[in-house]
C-alpha cells in the first residue's frame, strides 16, 4: 500500500472522529480504497469507515492487505499532522508495520514514524449498506452537534421523533427537560443550513446520550450529517466527506422495559 494525502490533517480528523468509540481497528486496504468496521466493547455502536482513492492525491494498493492498529497509538503519531504537510501511508506486502511519512515542502522537513501492526480478531457484523429506513434527514452537522451537546447535559437518554411537524429532539431528565423542534428549510445562500426530511412512517426512538456525544466528534469531517431511522433497525448517523467516502455510526436504540 502506498497512499498519499495532500493534507495530513484529513487522516487525523478521520482517526480522531472515532478513536474514543473503539480502541482498535482493522483497515482493509484494496484497490478500491481503505475500509474499516469496528464495534465498541458494549456492542451498541458500530463504526463503518470508507476512504476511497478519490480522497488521496495518489493511491496504490497492489493486493488486498489488512492493517490492524491500536487507535490510541495511531492518534499520538497523528498529532504531528499539519495542513501544510502531506502524509503518505506505506505498508509492505508481508505487513508487520505501518510507515507514516509527513512531508512539508515549504519547510523542507520530513518526519517518519513506524508503527507495529497488531493482529486483531474482532467480531464483524453483516451490515446491509442499503438498510431500509422509515425516515431520512439531512441537516447541518454544526446544528446537530449543538443540540446533542445542549440536551445531553440534562439526561442520559436522548429521544428523536419525526412526524408531520418536523424533527423533535428531546430529553426528560430528573431535574429538567428540554426539547428542540426543527422544520425543513432551504437556505439557498447557505446550503449547509438546509434541513430536509423524507419520511414514510413517523418514528420515536431513544438513544443513550453518551454514544451521541461520541458520534458528534466526527462532525469535523463534514458540514452536513445524514440521519436514518427505523423502528426495526439501528439508527445510522453519517458524515460524508467532500472528496468521497465518510464515516457512519450505527447505534442501537434503547427501549422501555
Amino acid at each position: 500500500l502506498e497512499a498519499k494525502f495532500d493534507d495530513s490533517t484529513i487522516f487525523k480528523k478521520i482517526i480522531d472522529s472515532f478513536k474514543d468509540s473503539v480502541s482498535q481497528i482493522n483497515f482493509m486496504c484494496s484497490e478500491s480504497g481503505i475500509e474499516a468496521q469496528a464495534i465498541d466493547d458494549s456492542r451498541v455502536l458500530l463504526v463503518s469507515l470508507s476512504i476511497p482513492p478519490s480522497c488521496f492525491e495518489t493511491y496504490r494498493c497492489d493486493r488486498p492487505t489488512t492493517v490492524g492498529v491500536y487507535l490510541s497509538s495511531l492518534s499520538k503519531l497523528l498529532k504531528s499532522a499539519s495542513s501544510s504537510a502531506t502524509l503518505t501511508l506505506y505498508v509492505e506486502d508481508q505487513p508487520d508495520e505501518l510507515l507514516l511519512l509527513f512531508e512539508e515542502s515549504k519547510a523542507s522537513k520530513s518526519m517518519e514514524y513506524k508503527m507495529k501492526l497488531v493482529d486483531i480478531t474482532a467480531d464483524m457484523l453483516e451490515v446491509d449498506s442499503d438498510m431500509k429506513s422509515d425516515v431520512s434527514v439531512e441537516m447541518s452537522g454544526v446544528e446537530f452537534t449543538k443540540i446533542v451537546r445542549d440536551l445531553t447535559q440534562l439526561s442520559d437518554s436522548f429521544t428523536v421523533s419525526v412526524g408531520k411537524d418536523g424533527i423533535v429532539f428531546s430529553v426528560d431528565g430528573e431535574t429538567a427537560s428540554g426539547k428542540v423542534l426543527l422544520q425543513p428549510k432551504e437556505d439557498l445562500a447557505n446550503p449547509e443550513n438546509n434541513l430536509s426530511i423524507s419520511m414514510t412512517k413517523t418514528i420515536d426512538l431513544s438513544f443513550a446520550s453518551k454514544y451521541l456525544l461520541d458520534i458528534i466528534k466526527a462532525s469535523t469531517l463534514s458540514n452536513m450529517i445524514s440521519l436514518k431511522f427505523s423502528e426495526e433497525t439501528p439508527a445510522l448517523f453519517e458524515f460524508k466527506m467532500e472528496k468521497g467516502g465518510g464515516i457512519g455510526f450505527y447505534l442501537a436504540p434503547k427501549y422501555d422495559e
Partner: peptide, 13 residues
C-alpha cells in the same frame, strides 16, 4: 430504559 445491542439487528460475519 434498557439498551439494545447491535446483535439484536445484525448477523455475525
Amino acid at each position: 430504559m434498557k439498551q439494545r445491542t447491535l446483535m439484536a439487528f445484525f448477523k455475525p460475519k
